[in-house]
Structure formats: structure tokens, C-alpha cells
Design a protein around this nucleic acid. Structure first.
Length: 440
RNA sequence: GUGAGUGUAGCUCAGUUGGUUAGAGCACAAGGUUGUGGUCCUUGGGGUCGCGGGUUCGAAUCCCGUCACUCACCCCA
């Protein structure tokens, strides 16, 4: 072939499209029942919007171009800047809390690899305009509501939770100036994602003395059931840290009240790579062969000010279709029906070969009534047409043949059970799916 | 941008120490079958063996280059 799909992009043939819709529908269903409203924005934005949020370094990771009006634009690599821009523009008039979700198509100019492509779909849900811990709980619940919706158990997927505020308070008490925190976070985030030697090397480059490093390691390894108590020991007398620990305890109680505590653990090593997180941070992990992060999110305080809006606290999360489908496949949680791209209710068959006008009349009326009705361009040859009907999963076959010629009747066959009854044209069209009275 | 691996039909893959016209299964199509489906049988279409060059009497096979894909690194919003 001369042309093929560009590196890192996918063609969605009907089966693939059905699977994509299956997961997007689940995201949408879960979002809506959690009280979120859907929004969307343009697929490209000013390049500066992304520079403002992520810095100059982001540019090489973007697909960007200059339009004929010399505007520097970029295809969106994430949704959050657009969300911030949209909320900032109408911040004064939006009712709080702002609970919005979106399933944007995003593009990043990265080298593709397992779970990461150059074009993908991402589910984002954010709660903006409040710093209430109830919002933290609700946002995290949405993720776990989705896990349960698709059948992911706490043995298959978990959510690790931490707090940037807590980290900041503990770091400050150890003499790390606030302007050093960001680079320390970036390294800490890699603790469980890099080989130990590589991580150690990176840590040395930002934390000079061995004493500081072992202190940090001691702090960061707190996790699990007793993790918060361990940290509370370390934080004794540190007011800011103690307050945040209390907030986390409350968060875990709320998650327990919502019945999703089984999925959640406290873990001080979760810090997220992203610079703008300021409060609670969390990351989901698959517990199978691919033990990678499958979703992540957190609270941010300065996001809107970056785009010129008023200060507003919020939190949100994101996850991609690529990594989520990998995970669901791994656990066999993608049902066969997910890939079904055509749902035929009635296959109307011209058994005689000269009844096209009758077949099309029936087909048109069924379609008008909202049913999916199909017919074959092949006329006559009942066997082949039934085969075709079965091949595309039709529920019923409606046969126009001898009984129609003799007494205007149709043979209606249930392709699931093989049962076949004769019905008059009028009774069938009046109630196609209903069980008919006994044949006259 | 760096490194490794893999490229044969739409898909999954065979293909002997280099040897004659490159195969199978699945999928697709036609027929067996002019009123009863998923099975079965027969047949068919579909390939510049990723591309270019080299070695050789002869290359899918060996060598070099190149491109694509996959995986890992970098990065991660």
C-alpha cells in the first residue's frame, strides 16, 4: 500500500470503533450518573496556551503549526488548559461546584510504545470551584465507580492516594526550600517507575547529602494501612502536616462510606510528575502483568491563574482509552458484544425473487418504527439469505414468499430459537416484535 | 533524539544447507442448494516475499543500506 495510517495513529474499523464506543459510553454513563456535565473545546489552541501551562519544553512534544494568519497553533495534547481557559472566561457566572467531564481526542508527538500512541482518547473529569474534601472524595469515587462498572476488582486495579500539601509541609520542616520542591517531586515520582540504580542517581542530583536522602526515603516509604500513622509520627508538632493528615483521614472515611475503600491505599511515594498539583494526588495501577499507572489526577490551586483567570481550586483526573483497553483485555473484561458493530433486528427476505417491492415496503416501515431492518440485494435463494441474516446477527428473519402470494402472510422466524410463525402483514407491521396470536 | 527486535496474502504464520510455478489455516467470494441459517464439501480471487543495491548460474533465504512497525530509553500533560 502506498499510504497507511501515520505512526502512532489508529484506523478504527467497525469492530474497533464498536470497542472504542463501548469504553467511551461507559465513561460517559459513569460521568453523567455522578452528576457531571459534558463539555468540549477546539482540537487546536494557541501554542502559547500550552506554553503557559507547561513551559517551553512542551513544544517539542506537540504537533504545532503556523496558520495562514501567522498564528502559532498546536493540536491539543491534553484537555486541562482548554478547561481552564473555558472556566476562566465565565468563572463569575458558573454555578459551583463546576463538575464537568470530556472525552477529547488528543495528540502528542511522542514515540509510540505500549499503552502510548500519538493520537488517543482521554477521559477527563474535574470538579472546580471548591477545595472541600467532599470534592476530593467525589472525584476519586468517579474513577472507582468506573472500575466497578467495567468489572475491575480491587485485586485487579487499585488507587494509591497521597497529598502534595503533606509532602510540602514535611519537606519544609526538613529545610528544603519551597522552590526546590518541584524538582524533588519530579524525582520522587519516579521511585517505583525506574530501575533502583537510575532512581538513586537522579535522587542524588537533587538531594545532595546521604543523610537527607535516607530521611527522605524513610518518609516516602510510608504506605498502606498504618502509613498515615507512621507519617503522623514524623509530623508531630508540624501543624501544616498534621492538618493535611487529618484531611486525608477524613478522605479515607468518606471513601469507605461510599463503599470503595477496598480499592484505596495511602502511599507517600505517589507524587505525580505534573508540576501544578498542590493538594491530594492519586494514581491508579493495574495489578496484572502490566503494573503501570492506568490513570491519575489530583488537586490544583493555580491552574486558572495560569491562563489569566481568578484563583480557583479544583481537582480532576485523566485516563486514556489505550491503557484502559490494554488493562481490560488483560483481565478478559472486554465482552464479545463490545466489538459488535451492527445490530440487525429484522432481515427481510425475498424468497421468491420477484418481491422486492414488498420487501422494501416492510423494510421501510420497520425502519420508520425505529427497528434496524436489513435486506439482501441477492434475490431468491432463501438458504443463502438466511445464512447472510445469521451472519450479521439478525434477531428475526421475515420471509416474503409463497404464503404472501397465497394469502398476504409473512413467515417470521426467530433466528435465536429457530421458531417460525406465520403472521398477516398488518398484524406484523402493527407489532413486529410482539408474539402473535395463534396462526389463523 | 538513543538502543534492540521484527518485516512472506486482509489476519495468524510455514517456507529444508540458497534451487525450478512461494504455501497453509482463518477471513472473503461463488457453487453444491429456485422455501429454511451458523456445520460440511468443492472451487475461486487475492503476493512487486517492506523497499533499494550487492554476492551468486540461481535470493523470500546470505551481505549492506533504507523505510515501516513493535518494545525499551528520553519525556510524560
Amino acid at each position: 500500500m502506498k499510504y497507511h495510517a501515520v505512526k502512532g495513529t489508529r484506523d478504527f474499523y467497525p469492530r474497533d470503533m464498536a470497542i472504542r464506543n463501548w469504553i467511551v459510553d461507559a465513561w460517559r454513563r459513569v460521568s453523567l450518573r455522578n452528576g457531571f456535565e459534558e463539555y468540549d473545546g477546539p482540537i487546536f489552541e494557541y501554542l502559547d496556551l500550552f506554553r503557559a501551562k507547561s513551559g517551553e519544553g512542551i513544544v517539542s512534544e506537540l504537533f504545532h503549526f503556523t496558520d495562514r494568519g501567522e498564528r502559532e497553533l498546536a493540536i491539543r495534547p491534553e484537555m486541562t488548559p482548554t478547561l481552564a481557559r473555558m472556566i476562566a472566561a465565565q468563572a463569575a457566572s458558573l454555578p459551583r461546584p463546576i463538575k464537568w467531564f470530556s472525552v477529547p481526542r488528543l495528540c502528542r508527538a511522542e514515540r509510540p510504545q505500549r499503552g502510548r500512541l500519538r493520537e488517543f482518547f482521554q477521559w477527563n473529569a474535574d470538579i472546580v470551584g471548591t477545595d472541600d474534601v467532599l470534592a476530593d472524595a467525589e472525584c476519586i469515587f468517579v474513577v472507582l465507580d468506573f472500575f466497578r462498572e467495567v468489572g475491575l476488582t480491587p485485586q485487579q486495579a487499585t488507587l494509591k492516594i497521597n497529598s502534595r500539601s503533606l509532602l510540602a509541609a514535611l519537606l519544609a520542616a526538613r529545610g528544603f526550600a519551597p522552590d526546590r520542591h518541584a524538582e524533588i517531586y519530579t524525582v520522587l515520582d519516579k521511585r517505583d517507575k525506574l530501575p533502583p540504580e537510575v532512581y538513586a542517581e537522579k535522587l542524588e542530583s537533587v538531594v545532595r547529602t546521604p543523610a537527607e536522602r535516607s530521611d527522605l526515603e524513610c518518609m516516602i516509604q510510608a504506605h498502606g494501612a498504618g502509613g498515615l500513622d507512621e507519617v503522623a509520627e514524623l509530623a508531630r508538632g508540624n501543624e501544616a502536616a498534621e492538618a493535611e493528615i487529618e484531611r486525608l483521614r477524613e478522605l479515607f472515611k468518606l471513601l469507605a462510606a461510599m463503599g470503595v475503600a477496598d480499592y484505596c491505599t495511602f502511599d507517600m511515594s505517589i507524587v505525580r510528575g505534573l508540576a501544578y498539583y498542590t493538594g491530594v494526588v492519586f494514581e491508579g495501577f493495574g495489578q496484572g502483568a502490566l503494573r503501570r499507572a492506568i490513570c491519575g489526577g489530583g488537586r490544583y490551586d493555580q491552574l486558572l491563574t495560569v491562563v489569566g483567570g481568578p484563583p480557583m481550586s479544583g481537582l480532576g483526573f485523566g485516563t486514556s482509552d489505550v491503557v484502559m483497553l490494554d488493562l481490560l483485555n488483560e483481565f478478559g473484561l472486554l465482552p464479545a458484544e463490545a466489538g459488535v458493530s451492527k445490530h440487525v433486528d429484522f432481515q427481510v427476505i425475498d424468497a421468491a425473487g420477484d418481491q422486492s417491492h414488498v420487501v422494501l415496503r416492510i423494510v421501510a416501515e420497520l425502519r420508520r418504527a425505529g427497528h434496524c431492518a436489513e435486506f439482501s440485494y441477492r434475490r431468491g435463494n432463501l438458504g443463502k439469505q438466511l445464512k447472510q441474516a445469521a451472519g450479521q446477527g439478525a434477531k428475526w428473519a421475515v420471509i416474503v414468499g409463497d404464503e404472501y402470494r397465497q394469502r398476504q402472510a409473512l413467515a417470521v422466524k426467530n433466528l435465536g430459537t429457530g421458531e417460525q410463525v406465520e403472521r398477516s402483514m398488518d398484524s406484523f407491521l402493527a407489532d413486529p416484535v410482539g408474539q402473535p396470536a395463534a396462526t389463523p
